[in-house]
Design a protein around this nucleic acid. Structure first.
Length: 845
DNA sequence: CAGTGAGCGAGCTTCCGCTTGACTT
């Protein structure tokens, strides 16, 4: 029996801490929150003074009952969840859910996972901070009220299954408004003048570039300036050298990691978090969901030693960073390598790359400033007063942290004036080699990428490190925004070149506006946003979160009653809900495109129940209107009358085959051909509007041939091809392509492998190579009991009976477990719950 | 699961933050 039970939030943390605390302590994990508001209904008893109605969800039931059992056996339960609002609430929920008596619990917190910090925290337990818990309850209830009262309005007024919330709706708003800015952006062009000069002096002959301090608005002005420059001289008016320095960026938080992984490695926010989680779980980095810039003293010490060793002591500068982020709760450290002395790690390519990024950023954050020397040279032009050429140069005198890491920017056009300038003296007269006046265009605002949206949300204090990635995926799942590329367009620009006293004029073209993986609002996103801004501008306000956070802080300080706060909020919010339900129009984004020349009826574009559509004729008229859905890539905002009318060309009859009509159309799954009620998908190569009868027949025949093959496969496979090690070897075809069956083992062959290309020889090769892969995984097998194995998992060894997995109890050596030991462990039944398969989305029929 | 789109309407959808082993057919 163990006297002490310690409960932390994450299993990986539990594993680490257990080592520090010794055998008197059993460390378990709660896997985050254990209770939440009821899934059904509002989950808040409004009449009963906004009392939250909590439940333990099905997936947490097992965790709670296990913890309950462990708590019963322990003398003292140490609640060691994070030291922030959510962590405090987790501790309180644990106390409630496990029915723990006040005198049995101790609340402890530690700021870093080191032996000292943990032992120290155990010496200084405190009570659960009720005020902090209440602040969390207020946060939770407010989010539920906002989300569950506004979303149903959208179902009624726009489309079913839509959603609104304090965080996601603001995220969508940012994207919609940015799109509007881009739409309303007026591009202006100007002429930038750059000269290439040659200077000959005691240091030799050198060339350098300088830019005119004035930009011309029109072609004429630019040309006139160049003409006047045919007969001028240039002289160095001043040389200004000044020292400058650059400092490293602070260590990574969740948000900055997502940004840099996006910019430098091209990873999506979700992918970044997945890889970071893997690194965390294998003990290579500290916790990846954090808003803290803090590094532990231990980490700083190791960083200092490493930098000194790798680059020399002059490169070391230990720094403490402080966060300026609104609402940061800093329960953890910044993201850093667990062992900073490990410059690289074992793992796959992406894991290595992400680790390298984290290592460099961490190391650089503790390195010296880079010392630069900036030079500005002003060149006078004879017969001009205001117009001057400026040459700028930048020389690195001491590289400091730049040796390791340079932070990227979203705006790559900020490539400043780097490089050296040749030596020269005031009064010297450089000669002009060439001067170019080039037409440039003002840059429209950038669309958000996933990571830059996260940065903006963080700036506004909206959302938390644990929710950035899920929020981004929610607004895409709801169809409010899409991540896509935008093709660049060609545009022409003028260029005037002055060389050897003559002016040449040329018109060139450039590609512009190409964007990759940016977030674009959809029609639904725009309509929902406009609706919400119109009716709930207070919730959609960029400062709404900040202002309620202030109130949560007051609750946490014990200066405000949380029920009072929610009551006040609801008193103004709920009438808004009622009013909107009663008075608002159905929002469909309807637009009149014009008149259909054939029927002389009105043509509208609007959002229907199944997405954007065109409607010919009015719903009020006697004759039923005609409808057609928009194609991919078209939008309510931009579709023209002509484009709309061609949508009615489908479905069309493309010809005849086997005495039946061939119909061509575009359906839910893209373009198709239909013959006799059977569908044949059209690939990207074929255009449904023009596809010929001949081609359609081809497609039908191809599909029939494939189907026939499939049917043959079904009767042919699984096919026995021989025996190996006394067990049958079969080839089978499954969901994931061809695979081998060898006894009870399944060996996947990969999608590209054709089943009929496998003979016994090849099959045995595959079986052997699979075995080799598995030897790393399988620790023990038992003859005659093929289903029961001891395996190496990500989180250590476990026993599998083919269906369920079982943890190996502490103190048992997985390498020497007997079959009887395994059976006993299995029979005790402390299996981890079977992983639930993701529920497929219900069809919207 | 591919001709839908108003209307009748049961019952469903939805929030934000914590955390999240392996075992395929």
């Amino acid at each position: 029996m163990v006297k002490n039970l310690v409960i932390v939030e994450s299993p990986a943390k539990a594993k680490t801490i257990e080592k520090f605390l010794g055998s008197e302590f059993l460390v378990r994990s709660s896997f985050g929150h254990v209770r939440d508001l009821t899934k059904k209904g509002l989950g808040v008893d409004i009449e009963g003074g906004f009392k939250p109605l909590y439940e333990i969800s099905a997936e947490k039931a097992k965790i709670v009952s296990d913890l309950k059992r462990a708590a019963k056996e322990a003398e003292t339960v140490w609640l060691a969840s994070d030291e922030d609002r959510e962590g405090e609430a987790i501790a309180w929920h644990l106390k409630e859910a496990l029915s723990l008596k006040e005198d049995k619990i101790r609340r402890i917190v530690f700021h870093e996972i080191t032996k000292n910090a943990i032992l120290e925290s155990v010496k200084n337990p405190r009570n659960i901070d009720v005020n902090l818990v209440n602040a969390q309850q207020a946060r939770r209830v407010l989010d539920r009220l906002v989300g569950f009262e506004i979303s149903p309005i959208l179902w009624k007024k726009i489309k079913p299954a839509l959603s609104a919330g304090r965080v996601q709706s603001v995220a969508v708003r940012l994207i919609v408004e940015r799109e509007n800015e881009i739409k309303n952006f007026m591009t202006v062009s100007f002429f930038r003048v750059v000269g290439v000069f040659e200077i000959s002096n005691t240091f030799g002959t050198n060339t350098f570039q300088a830019e005119l301090n004035i930009r011309f608005k029109t072609e004429e002005e630019a040309k006139t300036f160049l003409e006047k420059c045919i007969s001028v001289t240039y002289s160095i008016a001043s040389i200004d050298k000044k020292p400058a320095k650059k400092s490293p960026a602070p260590p990574f938080t969740t948000s900055t990691l997502q940004q840099e992984a996006g910019r430098k490695l091209g990873l999506s926010v979700e992918k970044t978090m997945q890889i970071a989680q893997q690194l965390y779980e294998s003990g290579k980095i500290t916790y990846m969901r954090t808003d803290s810039l803090n590094l532990s003293d231990m980490a700083l010490g190791v960083a200092k030693k490493e930098i000194g060793k790798l680059f020399g002591p002059e490169y070391v500068k230990i720094r403490k960073y402080r966060t300026s982020t609104k609402g940061a709760q800093e329960a953890h450290e910044a993201i850093r390598p667990t062992y900073i002395e490990n410059q690289d790690i074992d793992g796959d390519a992406t894991q290595k790359k992400l680790y390298d990024l984290i290592w460099k950023r961490t190391i650089a954050s503790q390195m010296s400033d880079a010392v630069l020397e900036k030079t500005d040279i002003v060149i006078d032009i004879s017969s001009f007063v205001k117009e001057k050429f400026i040459a700028s140069g930048e020389v690195i005198k001491f590289d400091g942290f730049l040796k390791v890491y340079i932070e990227s920017t979203d705006d790559e056009s900020l490539n400043g004036n780097s490089g050296t300038l040749p030596p020269m003296v005031v009064g010297e007269q450089p000669s002009l080699e060439e001067m170019q006046a080039t037409q440039k265009y003002s840059q429209q605002p950038y669309r958000y990428a996933e990571a830059s949206l996260v940065r903006k949300l963080e700036e506004l204090g909206i959302g938390r490190p644990s929710t950035y990635a899920p929020t981004i995926s929610t607004i895409q799942k709801r169809g409010y925004v899409v991540k896509q590329n935008k093709e660049g367009v060609s545009r022409s620009y003028k260029n005037f070149i002055l060389k050897k006293g003559k002016i040449k004029e040329e018109t060139k073209t450039e590609k512009t506006g190409y964007e990759k993986n940016k977030l674009f609002p959809t029609d639904i996103g725009t309509i929902v946003n406009d609706f919400l801004v119109q009716h709930f501008v207070n919730i959609l306000d960029y400062n709404f979160t900040a202002s309620v956070e202030k109130e949560f802080d007051e609750i946490a300080q014990g200066e405000k009653d949380w029920n009072e706060m929610i009551k006040e909020f609801y008193a103004s919010f709920h009438p808004q809900v009622e009013k909107t339900l009663k008075t608002s129009e159905r929002a469909s984004g309807e637009r009149l495109l014009g008149i259909d020349p054939a029927s002389k009826k009105n043509v509208y574009v609007k959002l229907g129940r199944y997405g954007p559509m065109i409607q010919i004729g009015d719903t009020e008229s006697e004759e039923k209107p005609k409808f057609a859905g928009l194609n991919k890539g078209q939008s309510i905002d931009t579709i023209t009358l002509n484009e709309a009318l061609t949508l009615f060309d489908l479905p069309r009859i493309a010809g005849k085959y086997e005495n039946e009509n061939i119909t061509v159309g575009i359906g839910r799954f893209g373009p198709y051909i239909k013959l006799n009620n059977t569908f044949y998908s059209l690939g990207l190569k074929d255009d449904p509007y023009t596809v010929s009868e001949q081609r359609a027949i081809e497609v039908i025949e191809e599909k029939r041939k494939k189907d026939k093959e499939m049917a043959e496969n079904k009767s042919k496979y699984p096919l026995k091809i021989g025996e190996y090690e006394g067990k049958e070897v079969l080839i089978a075809i499954g969901k994931y392509g061809a695979y081998l069956k060898h006894g009870i083992d399944n060996i996947p062959l990969g999608r590209s492998v054709k089943a009929d290309s496998i003979d016994l020889q090849k099959a045995i090769e595959s079986i052997l190579s699979q075995k080799e892969k598995n030897t790393k995984k399988v620790i023990r097998e038992f003859p005659g009991e093929e289903r029961i194995k001891v395996l190496n998992g990500k989180y250590g060894p476990y026993i599998s009976n083919g269906k369920e997995n079982f943890k190996i109890p502490k103190g048992k050596n997985p390498g020497t477990l007997t079959f009887e030991d395994c059976s006993e462990i299995i029979n005790k039944g402390t299996s981890s719950p079977a992983k639930k398969k993701p529920v497929r989305n219900k069809k919207s029929t």
